[in-house]
Design a protein around this nucleic acid. Structure first.
Lengths: 210, 210
DNA sequence: ATTAACTTTAACTAATTGGTTAAGTCAATA
DNA sequence: TATTGACTTAACCAATTAGTTAAAGTTAAT
């Protein structure tokens, strides 16, 4: 029937199934058998395509970043004020997370499990200077120039990231606590693009006199 | 030698070891043998005191909340404006998290693994109305009265919680990314008690004219 | 028709792990 | 001195799980 590219099909179905399973249970909670079942194939074929659990996990874990890193880079190495870049970031990250709301908790959990993997992965991908260093410098500059309110630049950045990501990382708790359905959560996060930026503007913009 | 209350000692040492181990690896990553080793006893004694892994985990998980729930309740059912309660909350929660920085990720991970346990646990502990309902109402009131800027009350609360908790949940990532030592992180979080509140005040306080 | 890639079936290995058991040590106490 | 409660040793069981193997069947392209 559909054997034109059965290799690609099965390979991809396995990878997709692995992604769900690893996100559901983390590396420790994931089961190779469950992945095979979800992909509609058997364990033998699973190992025919992917050497072992580790390597399969590695692919899933890398994919979790692969998408967003270039986006981040283009935003923060581009032109624009702190507020403009912040808005671009919030918009881009929220868009991604609305699509893949389980990403943050997965990533944080796995970095906690093995911080070194993450460390090595990123000291390669990123050039010499520490990440965000340039942006933090820009924040400091605009503060000195009186364009935005003065505070610890790292904290401003932390606040923005926190407000953007935490609702997703804590989604299971949040939704149970407030009896919020998936749909409602999604809508709340969408309206958040605007309201969060308003909140941030009030927090750091210096009001013009008269 | 110290056999006066060896029972209590071992019991507690096991529980403490279990706490570390569960926080390190989550339920799935924790090993009963590791707990026994860390407690300086053997598996037989471990099961002599605690029925099984589940029950031991349950104790640790409950403890993770037990401390803070009453505090939360006293803050939000007490007197004070939104800003005052927010400040009390930020102060109390940051103090706790500086002591136990790994709590948030542990809690979030385990709620993600089994949301029902969390749900059942809290629909008991909390009286009829949904948690924070009263506080959200108070926020809405103060907004209507023009005491603070208008926005979705749930989002204001989300912003406060996010900024408070996320730095801890993302600590492993954050520290690697910024090459921050434990001590430095701790100091940053301490100074945050003030700076975060300043940030929030700017964001929601309505400036007085002239 | 042949070949190579793909896929299944089904049994199996080896290691890990949660949990159990039985016999016995040791110190305090009654 | 007999008993009791805390604890150890060490072997063991049963289940789970990652990974393997071999043999056979299917499919698409050459």
């Amino acid at each position: 029937m559909d054997k034109k590219e059965p290799d690609i099909k099965s390979r991809d179905k396995i990878l997709a199934a692995a992604r769900s399973e690893f996100i559901r249970g983390g590396f420790n909670g994931a089961r190779m058998q469950s992945i095979a079942d979800a992909a509609g194939i058997n364990k033998a074929l699973l190992h025919y395509y992917y050497k072992n659990k580790e390597s399969l996990f590695e692919l899933v874990f890398n994919d979790a970043f692969a998408e967003f890193i270039p986006k981040l880079h283009s935003i923060f190495s581009g032109e624009g004020s702190v507020l403009e870049k912040t808005e671009q970031y919030v918009d881009a990250h929220l868009s991604l997370l609305i699509e893949k709301p389980d990403l943050p908790l997965f990533v944080l959990t796995e970095i906690h499990r093995d911080p070194e993997r993450f460390f090595e992965k990123f000291m390669n991908k990123l050039p010499g200077e520490p990440p965000f260093a340039r942006f933090l410098q820009q924040i400091a500059n605009e503060m000195r120039e009186g364009k935005i309110r003065t505070m610890n630049p790292r904290e401003l950045w932390m606040n923005v990231m926190s407000m953007t990501v935490f609702p997703f990382a804590s989604r299971p708790m949040l939704q149970r606590l407030t009896l919020m359905a998936d749909r409602e959560f999604q809508e709340l996060m969408t309206q958040r693009k605007k309201s969060m930026m308003q909140f941030i503007r009030y927090a750091i913009e210096i009001p013009v006199n008269n």
